[in-house]
């Protein structure tokens, strides 16, 4: 396998309040390889978005990275100055957001916004950038791009606005695209169109995609690999096939059981509800331990080591570590 384009190593991110510090991301590590689509799934509060914002270096001021490193092509993003980061953010690593209309400037025509991104990263004249913007818009499937370029964000539907963001990201041919729940709030038919577009672009320009979602259906249809997160810890990383056919971590198993499918009826009554994530952040061990059916004593006070089941399938769980077999 080729070298990873991004390597997250023991990243820890904490939220400091007046009286205490809480690690909202607790020492997570993963790699991403060129041209793959990797999913990051978890429930709300599991730290998916914070992981993405750490890579982009766009964390809010109250949240600080307090350990680990994020390697992009032999450079640690966390040690870069803000000037250096700006040559990478948007250019090499781009991001599209959950609420596309919020990510656009409401006072500027969308064509001009794309042109600005083109200008900033591609060193072309402003005349050229405008025609490139229209070109990009028709490339992402916006009909009648020339007149659409003159619309303001509020005149676009959610699906169109997301296409505009994708066009903007395309302007610089990034190596990594982070898509943070890009279809939340869109209807399923539009969601299908957007994912089709993302997959087309991915195979065309060979960008790697980190897709953040809470929908296992999307994971199954779009992703190659997936990381499952719970309360700021990664529980399991594996190929999509393995996660569905051979889930190892008790949390993954529990999560998969709670999925409702449209093509068949599930048994609603067998599932216990999980307690809210906020209650488990202060545990020094595995954060799922207090709700796990196969909990061991060491789970409560020690962080589980990584256990590799087969190449590319790793689990953070004591039940699989060698000494316990």
């Amino acid at each position: 396998m080729s070298a990873p384009i991004i390597r997250v190593e023991e990243l820890t991110v904490s939220l400091n309040t007046d009286d205490h510090q809480r690690n909202i991301i607790d020492s997570i590590s993963f790699d991403m390889f060129p041209k793959e689509i990797m999913g990051l799934v978890g429930e709300s509060g599991s730290g998916k978005t914070m992981t993405a914002l750490s890579i982009m270096q766009l964390l809010p001021k109250t949240i600080k990275i307090c350990g680990g490193s994020i390697w992009y092509e032999d450079k640690d993003l966390l040690k870069m100055t803000s000037r250096e980061i700006r040559t990478i953010r948007g250019n090499k690593i781009a991001m599209i957001f959950q609420n596309p209309r919020m990510a656009l400037n409401p006072l500027m025509r969308v064509g001009d916004q794309i042109a600005r991104a083109v200008c900033l990263h591609c060193e072309v004249s402003s005349e050229k950038s405008k025609s490139m913007a229209v070109e990009l818009m028709s490339q992402v499937g916006i009909p009648d791009a020339e007149s659409r370029a003159r619309s303001y964000p509020h005149q676009l539907s959610g699906g169109m606005a997301q296409r505009v963001l994708i066009a903007m990201m395309l302007a610089c041919k990034p190596k990594l695209l982070i898509a943070d729940e890009p279809t939340t709030g869109l209807d399923v038919t539009i969601q299908a169109q957007i994912f089709k577009l993302i997959k087309e672009i991915q195979s065309e320009i060979g960008v790697a995609v980190l897709l953040i979602t809470h929908d296992f259906g999307v994971v199954s249809e779009v992703c190659d690999r997936v990381g499952v997160m719970y309360a700021g810890q990664i529980m399991e990383i594996s190929s999509v096939i393995d996660v569905f056919t051979n889930p190892k971590h008790p949390y993954t198993q529990r999560l998969l059981k709670s999925i409702l499918r449209v093509d068949r009826k599930s048994d609603l009554d067998t599932n216990k509800a999980l307690s809210p994530i906020s209650a488990v952040f202060d545990s020094p061990g595995c954060r799922f331990a207090s709700q796990c059916d196969c909990v061991r004593p060491e789970c409560l006070w020690e962080r589980p080591k990584i256990y590799t089941d087969s190449p590319g399938h790793s689990v953070y769980c004591f039940n699989y570590s060698r000494d316990n077999k």
Partner: peptide, 10 residues
């Protein structure tokens, strides 16, 4: 509508 819904089964 039904065909647009992703099914969690690869």
């Amino acid at each position: 509508l039904l065909s647009a819904i992703p099914i969690p089964d690869p």
